[in-house]
Design a binder for these strands. Structure first.
Lengths: 202, 202
DNA sequence: CGTCGCATGTACCACCTGGTACATGTACCG
DNA sequence: CGGTACATGTACCAGGTGGTACATGCGACG
């Protein structure tokens, strides 16, 4: 079902897209750069959209691998988990893949065909995992879910910052500020997350 | 220097791109949809890249307008400023423009020609403004800069979340958690965020 | 040997792309 | 009236696009 040459092609395609982006993607250009013909890409993936679907799947798989690796490490506290996660993600060797992730994210938000699967669980899967982790620290699920959402946003937001500015020191400091705040104990919302929120009065 | 018809074309183009994204952008398709010919787009903007530059400029102008409007409101505290900003940005009527922003952000990270200007100050301009605001509350500049960076990341990260999941209640709760933490006082990092000036070193 | 299936290459197609050349309309100005 | 500058439309170009048709190389199996 998944032949060897197909896998080789796919991983080479992902590698290439991480470096060149998916914007000006053309079967011919991609094929030439990874040493094959556009005929082969059509043959193995059916169409350009099919190729993109597989690329997205592959990228998500890598993300999940990172996630599981990190969560195997016995982290001392939620704050340390955030620090460790950031330390891992901020490494410049991962930047190309992260650029690709944000590019695909943006295109998926705009409804580009083949990118929709990226949006499935792009948030939820992380929340579920973090709620799981929070259980070990005795944090109730609803609170953990909100905190995980916030932590994910911090990481992604600062990653966007880092990729645009390259300011490692500045983003590191921001992460540290957040981690420290978390360590001091984020205030537990007295009302349920989905409760009758008295919206922010402007 | 900016003719009337050109402005009409530009605003209609931005409106269209906000709804359809900039991914599958083609002069002909765009022209047909906004009721002109691709010839006119070339005539007024010189090239496709020129058009994209103007679109980016236009979008940034709108963002700045929002920013200045919000900062005219006398906000009671940093926490309330964050709540107000979020309350404004989370409105679904702004989603198309925000999707366009993140799409362009992603493409700019990948080096799409004409999108580079978007990255200039996409972080810094907000930091500068927030440092300004922080002065009113007596927060030292370096600390304010780090906190602003964190707040910006929270807003952008949660906006990415909201656009993907549509979970207004969940993201609202996360914002509230952050705002409440801020109100309780974010810990001040013991080490300075950076040296005298460790600007973005890309 | 033949034949069968996978992988690959060549040639081709209709279509669309950004961009140009050139003619035309239209309004104002002298 | 002519002239001029802006605006717009028509026709066209060379080149690239995704996708297809078809032949071929190449192993394995009988």
């Amino acid at each position: 079902m998944c032949s060897e040459s197909r896998n080789r092609l796919l991983s080479r395609a992902v590698e290439h897209l991480a470096g060149h982006g998916v914007g000006g993607l053309s079967l011919r250009g991609l094929a030439a750069d990874i040493g094959t013909s556009h005929r082969m890409l059509i043959y193995h993936f059916g169409s350009m959209e099919g190729l993109l679907v597989e690329v997205v799947r592959h990228v998500e798989e890598r993300q999940r691998a990172v996630l599981t690796t990190l969560t195997r490490d016995p982290v001392a506290s939620p704050a340390d988990a955030i620090r460790a996660m950031w330390h891992h993600l901020a490494d410049p060797t991962l930047w190309p893949l992260e650029r690709l992730f944000f590019e695909l994210y943006g295109q998926a938000l705009q409804g580009r065909p083949g990118t929709a699967p990226l949006l499935d669980g792009v948030v939820e899967s992380w929340l579920d995992l973090n709620v799981d982790l929070a259980g070990r620290w005795g944090v109730p699920a609803e609170v953990a879910r909100t905190h995980a959402r916030l932590g994910l946003a911090v990481i992604r937001g600062l990653l966007l910052d880092l990729l645009a500015t390259g300011d490692r020191a500045g983003t590191d400091a921001a992460v540290e500020a957040f981690a420290a705040a978390y360590q001091d104990g984020l205030p537990v919302p007295t009302r349920a997350p989905a409760g009758p929120d008295s919206g922010p009065d402007d």
